[in-house]
Design a protein around this nucleic acid. Structure first.
Length: 522
DNA sequence: TGAAGAGACTCAGAAAGGTAAGC
DNA sequence: CGCTTACCTTTCTGAGTCTCTTC
């Protein structure tokens, strides 16, 4: 119960924990154990002897120190904040760009990752472990021979300087928690990334011409004499129909237990012969990428259902559903069906084609711009649902929903008053028949019209927000939807592109905005 | 020859940061 | 008109996919 002065190294690691005291992570056993284990490694002999139990450590004083510091920064006068901003901008101006093929290009992540505690997603066995500080001696620089090779900080040297023009990264280092490589790469707005993005969508468009043949083939393969072929055909069906990820196998115990299509286990699906009147329903329930839950009930073809039963026969819940299949087999097969085809292309293809179809279906030429944007968001949402892109509802969701409902009510009342006013003005004009009263009628008419527009906007906003509660639109917009579909739609319906893409998105999709006219078809 | 591991790239949601609407 | 608050944008870095290399 007495305060203790820590050595520099132990103190720094302790502050990493103290800063996170409000976070749920610090309540998790695994996080606490991993942290304590790594923290001890930073302690000197004396500290190790005294600090033996994390439960008995009180970090509140440290925590308070950082809270106060953050508040102080927030309370800084405007000019001071401005000054800090300018300093940050200057740093970005110097280090945030590189020159590639004679063009000055923005770098995505030019700052090295600072030390801290590893935060995995879901039940990650390594959460809480110490992520160590990266030194110049850990960093590999990749540039061209004749360029200005960046100088390491004084009295330091780089791990290596190489001149590899077969890769796109500018610098890399190996991270200590999982032993993985990390890279400094270009911003999505760069020519290099833009071209790659374009290529990705072109491959997906090629799939459009092949998809019917591929679908017929996997239908046929459901009846194949070979088990492996049947499994591959059912897996491919899931990937195509449900936009599941490929599902590479991962090392057990090193990461959170998540799966994709090929790594599905028997315990992840349930077969219902009859579910509320629907035949052959498969119930999926598993954790996918980032430990996001995938839950879906899907009616499937009889042959698929039969196959699944067969695949599950005599197996434990923890056995692989597709025990004869892995992603490498699957992708080899796909490569034979179409050059460049891999499992993930199906996600891109189905996402983009869905957007295009939904836009065609939902866009009403008569509607206002605001309503068209709502239609766009709905189409976008259909894709996000397909790809299972979720978000935790914002903490302020309930409150903000109530707010907007209140606003709608208020606007309705205002509208009623405005209607009355208009009526009165009309009556008044009928009696007086003068210019002044006529003008008043016009004025009231305009007011009423404006209010009706405002009300409609609010209602559109409310609907949009409600439907969006748990769905994240950003990921599909940024990574799965061919931007040319969006650009063409905007041009066709005279919706300003800024209403759909913000500044960053316009920069990323500059290639599509440049090359697309309203007739583009995916 | 195929499994394991390394490497390089895309995709992912949370959190921090910034901004504009509303009080 | 200044301040707060809610929302949108940007940053961050972890988590996948898929290919290449090695034994």
């Amino acid at each position: 119960g007495s305060p203790m002065k820590l050595s520099l190294a132990a103190e720094e690691v302790a502050t990493f924990y103290a800063k996170m005291l409000d976070h749920e992570y610090t309540t998790k056993d695994v996080f606490r154990q991993n942290f304590f284990h790594d923290w001890k490694k930073e302690m000197n002999e004396q500290e190790k002897k005294i600090i033996t139990d994390l439960d008995k450590c009180d970090f509140t004083q440290m925590h308070q120190y950082f809270t106060e510091k953050a508040e102080a920064k927030k309370a800084l006068p405007k000019e001071e904040k401005q000054k800090l901003k300018v300093e940050q901008d200057e740093i970005a101006e110097i280090y945030g760009y590189c020159v590639m093929d004679g063009h000055r290009e923005k770098i995505a992540n030019f700052k090295i990752e600072p030390p801290g505690l590893f935060r995995g997603r879901g039940d990650h066995p390594k959460m809480g472990k110490l992520k160590k500080r990266i030194m110049p001696e850990d960093v590999i620089i990749n540039c061209s021979r004749d360029s200005n090779i960046p100088e390491p900080p004084k009295n330091h040297h780089w791990k290596e300087i190489r001149f590899d023009n077969k890769v796109t990264w500018l610098a890399s280092w190996t991270e200590n928690v999982q032993g993985l490589l990390k890279y400094i790469m270009l911003n999505p707005s760069s020519k290099l990334k833009g071209e790659k993005d374009w290529q990705k969508y072109e491959i997906a468009r090629r799939l459009k011409d092949k998809i019917d043949a591929i679908r017929s083939q996997y239908h046929r393969d459901w009846k194949s004499r070979e088990m492996k072929t049947r499994q591959r055909a059912v897996a491919l069906y899931f990937i195509d129909k449900l936009a599941l990820r490929a599902g590479n196998e991962k090392e057990e115990g090193e990461t959170a237990d998540t799966v994709g299509c090929c790594s599905l286990r028997v315990e992840h699906i349930k077969l219902n012969e009859n579910d509320n009147g629907q035949q052959c329903v498969v119930e999926f329930d598993f954790l996918g990428k980032d430990s996001i839950r995938y839950y879906n009930k899907v009616p499937v073809e009889k042959q698929v259902f039969k196959n699944l039963k067969l695949f599950m026969e005599n197996k434990d819940p923890t056995d692989d559903l597709f025990d004869r299949l892995n992603t490498s087999d699957l992708n080899k097969h796909l490569q034979e069906l179409m050059e460049g085809l891999t499992a993930k292309v199906f996600r891109t293809y189905n996402a983009s084609i869905t957007l295009q179809e939904q836009l065609a279906e939902l866009t009403d030429p008569e509607e206002s711009i605001a309503e068209k944007i709502l239609s766009y968001n709905r189409a976008n949402r259909a894709v996000a649902i397909l790809c299972n892109h979720q978000r935790t509802p914002p903490k302020t969701y309930e409150k903000s929903m109530k707010n907007i409902q209140a606003k709608i009510e208020a606007k309705k009342e205002q509208l009623a008053v405005a209607k009355k006013d208009l009526k009165n003005a009309k009556v008044d004009h009928k009696v007086k028949k003068d210019e002044k009263s006529k003008q008043m009628v016009e004025k009231k008419k305009k007011l009423l019209q404006r209010m009706e527009e405002q009300l409609m906007k609010l209602e559109v906003q409310a609907t949009d927000r409600e439907e969006n509660k748990q769905i994240a639109l950003g990921t599909s917009k940024l990574n799965y939807l061919d931007p040319r579909i969006t650009v063409a739609w905007c041009k066709k319906w005279h919706v300003p592109i800024e209403k759909i893409y913000n500044k960053t998105q316009r920069e990323k999709f500059a290639w599509a905005i440049d090359m697309t006219d309203e007739n583009f078809e995916f």
